[in-house]
Amino acid sequence: MAKEDELLTAFLNHRILVEKYKISASDLPKTIEDGMKSTVPIIAAITNIVKGIQRRPIISDNELQKQVIDLINRKG
């Protein structure tokens, strides 16, 4: 498993996604690729952050932040 997928899986295993966002564990993406396709804003946002921090070339914090906010509100 790629490092970013491992990280994403670790984050998406957090209870808050099941308890507060009512996302079924089986619906949680296992890879960055799947995560980017998610229509759930929080999953898309987390996936984007993981990708943004792990992948090269590095993008700026402002750019990453903008992407995250767009994802939260585009899909929300």
């Binding site: 670790a10 984050f11 295993n13 957090h14 808050i16 996604l17 507060k20 966002y21 804003p41 929080i42 946002a45 987390i46 952050i49 995250v68 906010i69 939260i72 509100n73 929300g76």
Partner: peptide, 19 residues
């Protein structure tokens, strides 16, 4: 819009820190 963004980012912070 702002409240929703904040709520999700608060949760993301919690997820990152607690993980």
């Amino acid at each position: 819009f702002l409240i929703n963004t904040r709520t999700i980012l608060r949760d993301i912070e919690t997820i990152f820190k607690e993980t």
